[in-house]
Design a protein around this nucleic acid. Sequence first.
RNA 1: CGCGGGGUAGAGCAGUUGGCAGCUCGUCGGGCUCAUAACCCGAAGGUCGGUAGUUCGAGUCUAUCCCCCGCAA
Length: 324
Amino acid sequence: MRILFMGTPDFAEVSLRAIYNAGYDIIGVVTNQDKPKGRGMKLVASPVKEFATQNSIPIYQPLKIRNNTDFIEEVKRLNPDVICVVAYGKILPKELLEIPKLGCINVHGSLLPKYRGAAPIQWAVLNGDKKTGITTMYMDEGMDTGDMILKQEVEIGDDETTGELWNKLSIIGGELLTKTLEKIEDGTAPRIKQTGEFSLAPMLDKSIAKIDWKNMTAKEIKNLVRGLNPIMGAYSYLNDKKIKFWKVQNIKLEDFCYDKNLKLEELKRMENGIVVISNEKEGLYIKCIEGIIKVLEIQGENSKRMNICDFLRGNKINTKSKFE
RNA sequence: CGCGGGGUAGAGCAGUUGGCAGCUCGUCGGGCUCAUAACCCGAAGGUCGGUAGUUCGAGUCUAUCCCCCGCAA
């Protein structure tokens, strides 16, 4: 089988590696353009491109695909049996989808039809879901609306971050893609229509990263923190300084009062976002709706991530100060 | 030439107009306590990123090099 692979980030690289190691004939790799990245804005190749370079697979990096007749012609000339798309980053037009005889298949990081769109993994964590998974499907013109082929569930841990889940799913994605190709090759791949309710997982907007102490419960804040780790980091302001939280715990008000010997009524009356306890021995505790947030890992302005005790040694946070 | 912050004890930081190198924690030794991430006493630990310069005198001012980090993508 002649396979054309389209993908860009590390998540896609894992899938490419899996089918490469499984012995499939990869006739080319399509990946996004090198982008200026990091300090100094140097051009950096995508992980998929790196892998292709190392293994001498031909690389294509079209600026755009829609209305790019040169590229479409090139793909026709390549004559792929299947195109595998994993987190490529561009929407594919119908004329491209119709080229491979056996179809275009996609690896998606959710249990479709839940979380169609660009950020399924992030949203699963942000919403505090207990499980998610990987779905492979035949692509059509819609946004992740094609017929499903294989599906595998994965549990999400209470403290699992998007980054951890991302890695886990990328590996499963590679395995499932390999299985899917096997089934396509021997003609046993099913075509399962997506039925029932669907939901969308749009690309994350920067504005969601700010913690809203007035309206979010402690549990929601915790989910926000782990959902945005390590992509953006949930942040808040303290004395006009931006502070990011990377790891927090969520403690019930009752348990907290019992532990610290405080009066529940007094605690309930405090404003949300107020620092209840802050010292380098016990750590940092913040009053929230329906709970206390205990900060474990934090990052100050222009600083790196560090555990809360180290942070408080050099950066004093006063009790009763308020996160905005 | 994208924008910005920084390099001082093992860790996190302070250090004013140039004038004895400090704080908190940790480590080591001792004490106290039924008990502790408790408390008390004591000690060790530094080429202040490198080099050159200004100066009676540089962590601090100037030049230059190296390294680290954040934003942004």
